[in-house]
């Protein structure tokens, strides 16, 4: 229970902190709407205008991934710049438990994008919100967010080992959108991308949310696989985080930007 409280309080704190950044707010407010508009016009122009709701949901999931990728990938670097990394590491808790709320917060702020793209599609482009399984949708979106937050911990812990992690962040946005089938169906991609997509929780998260919207398949297995892969990422991320912390303490490089 204390563990849940720590994560919940930490997540709330970091969501509040992110909500104070004008850049974060405006980017998170505006860019997903542009992406959703682009998706709407593309689907309208194409042969599948009936998949507009799918396009809006896909654009929302893309924005959630962007938020997790940039927020989690740079989570530790951001704490360094703010001068709060030492405080976090001084806390008598495992480092992963202190960084996980940050990565979860980036996924939670990405939820806005999902809501905004659906509202934008409904209000501006009159896309009917005919969700096939509303209950499954209401469950699958927060579960997908939680899964991506757990995946974010692995990103946060491994990217800190990579020099110029920003370059990796910038290079990973589109590939993950692509192989996860967020907007482009996986079936049209080359066969070798299949195993890569299948190993990513983003693929199963997008699939679960899409299935809840279209009713095209069973939601729960996809969601289960998403959470299982994410949990494995959480464990791996925690292990890497402990290793990084020990190494940084031993080498006295914790606060070095």
């Amino acid at each position: 229970m204390r563990l849940v409280r720590l994560v919940a309080r930490g997540t709330l704190l970091h969501v509040k902190q992110m909500s104070r950044s004008q850049f974060e707010i405006a980017t998170a407010l505006f860019v997903p709407l542009v992406q959703a508009t682009l998706a709407v016009y593309l689907f309208r122009a194409g042969s599948e205008p009936h998949r507009m709701l799918e396009a809006a949901v896909g654009a929302g999931m893309m924005a959630v991934w962007t938020s997790v990728l940039f927020g989690s990938g740079g989570a530790i670097q951001m704490q360094r710049w703010q001068g709060t990394l030492e405080m976090l590491m001084l806390s008598p808790r495992p480092p992963a438990l202190l960084i996980f709320p940050i990565t979860l917060a980036t996924a939670v702020t990405g939820t806005y994008a999902m809501v905004a793209t659906l509202l934008w599609g409904g209000l501006v482009y009159r896309i009917p919100l005919d969700i096939a399984h509303p209950l499954a949708f209401v469950v699958s979106v927060p579960a997908a967010i939680l899964g991506l937050g757990m995946f974010g911990l692995l990103l946060a812990s491994t990217f800190v080992l990579v020099p110029n992690a920003n370059a990796v962040n910038n290079a990973l946005e589109y590939p993950v959108w692509l192989v996860s089938g967020m907007l482009v169906p996986i079936t049209v991609l080359p066969g070798w991308t299949g195993p890569i997509g299948a190993a990513l929780p983003t693929t199963w998260a997008a699939r679960a949310v899409r299935e809840s919207v279209t009713g095209a398949g069973p939601v729960w297995p996809s969601l289960g696989i998403c959470l299982a892969i994410s949990a494995a990422c959480l464990v791996a991320g925690a292990a890497v985080m402990s290793y990084v912390e020990r190494r940084a303490r031993a080498n006295a490089t914790l606060a070095l930007a």
Binding site: G46, A171, E173, Y174, L183, V184, V188
Partner: peptide, 20 residues
């Protein structure tokens, strides 16, 4: 280099799929 190349691939595959 890598970011824009994947952006191209993303839209090319999406365009193929939608027949735009």
């Amino acid at each position: 280099l890598i970011g824009p190349l994947f952006q191209l691939l993303f839209f090319a595959y999406l365009g193929r799929q939608l027949g735009v």
